[in-house]
Design a protein around this nucleic acid. Structure first.
Lengths: 195, 195
DNA sequence: ATTATCTATAGATCTATAGATAATGC
DNA sequence: ATTATCTATAGATCTATAGATAATGC
């Protein structure tokens, strides 16, 4: 096996797979608490009862660990592109309101990712290109070429995504004051979706 | 002068005020590039031709420097609460599209601020309480108790703020693909504002 | 043999304090 | 006298590499 190859999950032992999963869960938590730059490998390692050097056996660098977290927990990957529907989006927001940890991890990473040379920058840039395209497709399936208010699907898509992200920050900072699922449903009504 | 007092700007010399302003500008830049946690005092100091220790003469801790940046550059402070109007918001977004540096600083800080114990967390939490209230007031002045689409000002306000923030992330990551001012005008039309 | 983990450690940082020196303003 | 700045340095970190040791699986 040449340097740089990834072991396929079929050749990696079950034990090792469990360890990897434990580490990813711990990394998710630590990133939620401190961001990527603030998350130390030692803090992640400690949570799974390893030394920092022991952790580096499973993920060769800190950046490799981040990439693995991003790929495993991307909510947009969970639903095939062609199967998104507007009412599913409402459910996703409701579901997110029940898992502040993951929302916080991704919100912290999104914020950091706009800084120069951040290892998650390419991931988010590409993801948003894809998510806007998916959302445009969803809107087109629901409304055709023109939404009730006159917007094209392509112009409404970035707004839909912006509302989801923006509400998450307000909600994370002050969950008592912001009813995220309600606010998102309000936005869907603005778009002309029947409640 | 007891420990912890701030020197008023009238007792601080002009020279010193200039130095402070230089440092704040440099800090704004470095935070935009690396976030708060990633910004070192040495990097800020170098930009103004000081040593890191020299910088600490002007701001006693890294956190004090952050607080000064936040207070000086808060765009919402620039317009008195009672003077906001919907069309001013559109102009603000257009203006922001011409100053990616400041937008990037605040977007990076907002992202970091959701992590635990972040020194900007209280600032953003309180700011959003205030900004939502201002926006509700603006909407009420424009539309009264019910917007054209049936929402109350209080329920539309968090959406307005969310769209502004969310669009900024998409735009910072991929300015070619996202026409931020256009998208925001689209949203204002959704709300029922006459273009 | 391969995999998992550890100890030791290099080499960079980082923030903040202590105390000296130079410049400025009454 | 006060203000601005510097050198020296303490005391914590942090990531990553090297190499030893133990455990696992053919």
């Amino acid at each position: 096996m040449s340097y740089g190859d990834r072991m396929s999950s079929s050749t990696r032992s079950v034990r090792s797979g469990e360890r990897r999963a434990e580490i990813l869960r711990a990394a998710l938590e630590v990133i939620a608490e401190r961001g990527y730059r603030g998350a130390s490998l030692a803090a992640v390692a400690e949570r799974v009862g390893l030394t920092q050097q022991g952790l580096l056996h499973h993920f060769p660098t800190k950046e490799a660990l981040l990439v693995a977290v991003l790929e495993e927990r991307d909510q947009w990957d969970a639903v095939p592109d062609s199967q998104w529907r507007l009412d599913l989006l409402g459910s996703l927001v409701e579901y997110n309101a029940m898992r502040p940890g993951i929302v916080q991890t991704f919100s912290a990473l999104l914020g950091e990712s706009v800084t120069e040379g951040h290892p998650a920058r390419a991931f988010f840039t590409e993801r948003y290109v894809g998510v806007r395209a998916s959302m445009a497709q969803v809107l087109r399936a629901e409304f055709g070429e023109t939404l009730p208010n006159g917007l094209t699907p392509e112009r409404a898509a970035p707004l839909l995504v912006a509302v989801m992200d923006g509400l998450q920050y307000q909600w994370l900072l002050d969950p008592e004051s912001v009813d995220m699922p309600q606010a998102f449903r309000d936005f869907l009504e603005l778009l002309g979706v029947e409640g």
